[in-house]
Amino acid sequence: MFLFEDVEHGYDERRVLHGISVELTERRIAVIGANGSGKSTFARLLNGLQVPTSGRVLVDGLDTRSEGRAVRRKVGFVFQDPDVQIVMPTVAEDVAFGLKHRGLSKKDTAARVVEVLAEHGLSELAERPAHLLSGGEKQRLAIASVLALEPECVVFDEPTTMLDLRNKRRTTRVIAELPHQVVVVSHDLDLLSDFDRVLVFDEGRIVEDAPPARAIPAYLDLMAPC
């Protein structure tokens, strides 16, 4: 569903991605690499949050450069820090946020919010101010709010980095159970051990592209201190 054609990306003088050409059709895809290897930028190219300096990114044939809005409807994005992603003061309002902007009526929005909160075990927190949630609850809310919009694919940017072990496992399970196509950027190798495909980034290039059994050892090798 994602097609990268000769993608280059840079900020000012600094190139962060070089000649990326790749097609992503698998259901579970992971992106790993060192800090600053370009994987976060790669994730942001998937839903047109950033558009490539040259080359193009197609999502189901839609160019992220010209059809950014349509692309973002298809591709949900869960950010690393739920605090910046939760934009409304209370849990229920935050889930309602995206729905309202989709033009759903008040009644339909309210019904959908109740449904989504129940699905994610957040019902009893509906009226809770977002800043009083624990880290794990914030993450659950961030994911719930994205899934409420029924995207076809979900991109996770380091979804477990800020979580304790219990919440990490919980998030891993939630991701595993999603029927959606999923792209996860992560340092958390447990999370992606049963994925279909792993892209290893190094200095802005894809240096390995294989199932986890081959890609993870290559990554560990790459990360070995010299």
């Binding site: 949050l49 950014g68 910046v84 902007h101 919009l149």
Partner: peptide, 14 residues
């Protein structure tokens, strides 16, 4: 980051 999140969550939508 918030601006990015708002875009991702469809503020630019309808």
């Amino acid at each position: 980051h918030i601006a990015e999140a708002l875009d991702a969550r469809g503020l630019d939508d309808a």
